[in-house]
Simulated assay, not measured.
Amino acid sequence: MIRRPSGRPPHGPTSCARKADALLACDFIETVTLNGQRQYILAVIEHTARRVRVLGTTAHPSATWVTQAIQNLVMDLDDAGCRARFLLRDRDGKCPAIMDEILAEADIKTVLTGIRMPRMNSIMERWVQSCRRELLDRCLLWNERHLRHALREYEHFYNQHRAHQTLNQAAPLRPAPDPITDPGRIIDLNIRRRDRLGGVLHEYSHAA
């Protein structure tokens, strides 16, 4: 499971702490590592901020594992000051009943999608497609440890650097930069690129 390091700094300007009554959505993603092991990734996304939290990955998504992941989520939301009211998910059998009980204790109501109706959870499904296209389908992931590392890198990239049209080209935890209107600066514009995961992900920024 992907654990949040202690002493993590507060979330950014578009964090859930500045939005009341947030709507969350979650889903499992399946992938297979090069050692032949099937892995199950559990992730949650905030509808408004588009901030994603990768709760962990495991080869055995037992009720105990899912329960711990949801407990970690509830604590993370509390630390961020997030007042989520609903969590949208499908009817996956890997989600135990106690999961909904833990959320209910945190005043988060679970809303189930219809059977074979992925469009009811379209924002989460869209993130799953992005994760597959931008990460899982482009990486040779050796084992669970390597997958956890790649997911941490992608979560940071998605929340801090990846521009979102829905957010007017901002990232979930980073506001959009001020537009450059000076023609002289545009002509001499210097862009730096930082590669993550050996060049699978690219981060661009203006050079100082």
Rank of each mutant, 00 (worst) to 15 (best):
H202N: 14
L87F: 00
I29D: 07
A20N: 08
T110V: 15
H156M: 04
P5A: 01
L34E: 11
M99T: 15
L24N: 09
Q129F: 05
C95F: 15
H60L: 13
L73R: 09
S205M: 09
A150L: 09
S62Y: 04
R193A: 15
N121A: 07
Y158W: 10
E203P: 08
Q165P: 06
Q39D: 11
L87G: 00
L147V: 13
L77V: 05
G93Q: 04
E155I: 04
I123M: 08
C95A: 06
E125S: 02
A63P: 03
R116N: 11
I191S: 12
S62M: 08
T14R: 01
A150E: 04
I115A: 15
A163G: 02
L23R: 11
I2D: 01
H149Y: 03
R91T: 00
L201S: 11
W127C: 05
L197A: 11
R116F: 13
Q129R: 15
A49M: 13
Q160N: 13
P179I: 06
C26T: 12
P9A: 01
R38C: 01
W142E: 11
T57E: 11
L77D: 02
M120W: 09
A106V: 11
I2P: 00
C16T: 12
S15A: 14
R8S: 09
F28V: 08
F28K: 12
N168G: 14
N143Y: 07
